[in-house]
Structures are given as structure tokens and as C-alpha cells.
């Protein structure tokens, strides 16, 4: 059965107040076409769970976010994400700030239907101070260690972007790092996969080995073909990060950037990106 749908259909399936996980890492292989579709939608009041990059920044800038759950928000080559900074410094979003390893354990717990997983990461730091709901758990064994019980990062919907997928939702990464996209898919009630290209199932192994098949269709509710859909984040080996565009996003005039690139649909965005490239 084909699960092919459009980015706007994905955004239209979201409800205000939902918890949304977003795959990738920093400014790498982010499902930006799906994020842009959310910017165009009426949904709001989201809790966004992400190893954060411009996905988080854009959603904050458009007033879509009530709470960010993240260990960082960065654009890698530009360390600080300007739109997230503004949201934090003006107090317009709430923040659940975890250590990177804690965050991974939250994803792992959710993916395996566990209420929590124990870890040392976070002990002694102010992560405990700023998350007063965090609890510790004592080992029942002779060591008696007291560890942080990282609560499962369950989510209503996960959004991930991969290089290839078939129509049924088997999704493949071809770059150097899977990030945590499979865990997001398993941690969510529904996962939507956008991809550079939809291919026939028989063609999946033409570009990568079996172990590049990161996400099984059992975890996928919908597949969207969005060429250049991670832009301006990286999607190796299909394309690298668009550093010049990222600089324009981070340091250029924000209102002009919005007007030029984010006032139309995805086709208009890609056309404006192309036009910029030709200049």
C-alpha cells in the first residue's frame, strides 16, 4: 500500500498542542520541507523534541512552539541559532534542557516502551536544577548507585528526512551518519518520512547496503518526496549544507529573508533558492 502524501498533508494532520520530534542533528539532514509546511499551517502550541538546528529556530520564529526539548540548538558552522536565541531571550518559549546522552536515553526509552532509562549523564550539573521534575533511581544491586531516571521522550509525531524511501515507508540513509532518525520513528505514535527521492522497493539496494535501510515501514505513516527537502541543512551525499544561504538566514535581514523565501509554498521556496544560486 502506498503511503505517499504531500508535505502540506503532513502538516495538516498535526494538531495544536502536539509533541513533535524532529530528526537529524544541528544543521544536518533536517526535514526542512516538512518544517516549512508547518510554518504555512495554522498549527501552534507545539512541544518540539530535537537535537536542535534551524528547524527549532524557524518554528520558534513563527510562534509555533510552546516548549523546546533539546540538549542544544546550533547550526554547526554557525554555533548559535539566532531565532532560538531571540525566543529564549524574550521568554517566548519554555525549555527542557537535557544533556545529549540523556536525550538519547529518552529516545531509547520511548522507542522501547520503557518509562525511563538510568544514566550518569546530568548528575551534578544544573540540568537537575532547571528540570525539577527529573527524578533519580537507585540501583537495586550491590553497587547502590543513584542515577538519573531519564523519562521516555514519547511523541505524537516524528518528522525525519532521509535520502531514499519506497512508497510503503522503508527509508534509507546514504550519508555518513544515521543520526537518531530510527529512534524518533520508534518513539512516535506516527512518523512521517520525507526523502530526496521515492524509489521502487526493488531499487533500494542499488545505492546502499542492507544496513543503510534505517527505518522499516512498520514505523512509517506517510512518505513525502521532497527533492532538496533538507535545504539549507546538509543531506549527504545528495548535497552538502548551503553555507551561504545559512549565513543569509542567520545574519541577513530577517524580514527580507522571510519575504523572499518563506512567503510562498515549497515550490516557490525552491524556485527562490534556485534563483539565488543563479545570481
Amino acid at each position: 500500500m502506498s503511503k505517499e502524501m504531500t508535505a502540506d498533508e503532513v502538516a495538516g494532520s498535526l494538531r495544536s498542542g502536539m509533541t513533535i520530534g524532529i530528526g537529524g542533528w544541528g544543521s544536518r539532514r533536517k526535514p526542512m520541507a516538512l518544517v516549512r509546511a508547518i510554518l504555512r499551517s495554522s498549527v501552534t502550541d507545539l512541544t518540539v523534541v530535537s537535537y536542535g538546528g534551524p528547524d527549532v529556530g524557524l518554528l520558534c520564529a513563527y510562534g509555533k512552539v510552546r516548549r523546546v526539548v533539546a540538549p542544544f540548538v546550533t547550526m554547526d558552522s554557525i554555533p548559535l541559532e539566532p531565532r532560538f536565541r531571540i525566543a529564549r531571550q524574550t521568554g517566548t518559549v519554555e525549555f527542557t534542557e537535557y544533556d545529549e546522552g540523556m536525550f538519547m536515553f529518552g529516545l531509547l526509552a520511548a522507542a522501547h516502551r520503557l518509562p525511563f532509562l538510568p544514566t550518569r549523564a546530568g548528575l551534578g550539573s544544573d540540568v537537575m536544577r532547571v528540570n525539577p521534575d527529573l527524578r533519580t533511581v537507585r540501583s537495586p544491586y550491590a553497587d547502590g548507585e543513584e542515577l538519573i531516571a531519564v523519562p521516555a521522550l514519547t511523541m505524537d509525531v516524528a518528522l525525519v528526512h532521509l535520502n531514499r524511501a519506497d512508497r510503503r515507508g522503508n527509508a534509507q540513509y546514504l550519508g555518513p551518519d544515521p543520526y537518531f532518525d530510527d529512534l524518533y520513528a520508534k518513539a512516535a505514535d506516527r512518523c512521517y518520512v520525507s526523502c530526496e527521492r521515492i524509489v521502487d522497493t526493488t531499487d533500494l539496494l542499488k545505492e546502499g547496503p542492507p544496513q543503510s535501510l534505517l527505518i522499516s515501514r512498520a514505523f512509517v505513516a506517510g512518505v513525502v518526496e521532497t527533492p532538496n527537502g533538507a535545504h539549507f541543512t546538509s543531506c549527504e551525499p545528495d548535497y552538502g549544507r548551503d553555507e551561504a544561504f545559512q549565513r543569509a538566514y542567520a545574519t541577513g535581514d530577517w524580514d527580507a529573508f522571510r519575504a523572499r523565501y518563506l512567503s510562498g509554498d515549497e515550490a516557490a521556496y525552491q524556485e527562490a533558492v534556485n534563483e539565488r544560486g543563479r545570481q
Binding site: 536542535g52 533539546a70 540538549p71 542544544f72 540548538v73 546550533t74 554555533p79 548559535l80 532560538f84 536565541r85 529564549r88 531571550q89 524574550t90 521568554g91 534542557e97 537535557y98 544533556d99 545529549e100 546522552g101 540523556m102 544514566t119 550518569r120 549523564a121 546530568g122 548528575l123 551534578g124 550539573s125 544544573d126 540540568v127 536544577r129 532547571v130
Partner: peptide, 26 residues
């Protein structure tokens, strides 16, 4: 590496704690 000023509403939001808590205790 997280933020400058009060965490509740920083004067300057930096990276976030990233992996520093876990790195330093592990």
C-alpha cells in the same frame, strides 16, 4: 556553555549544555 544570565530568561542564550554534563562525569 549554555547561557549567560538567569537560565529562566537568559541575557544571552548560548549553545545549551550539549554533552558537557555527561562528558565530565563519564
Amino acid at each position: 556553555i549554555s547561557c549567560i544570565g538567569p537560565w529562566e530568561r537568559p541575557i544571552s542564550q548560548l549553545l545549551g549544555v550539549r554533552g558537557a554534563p555527561g562528558n565530565t562525569v563519564c
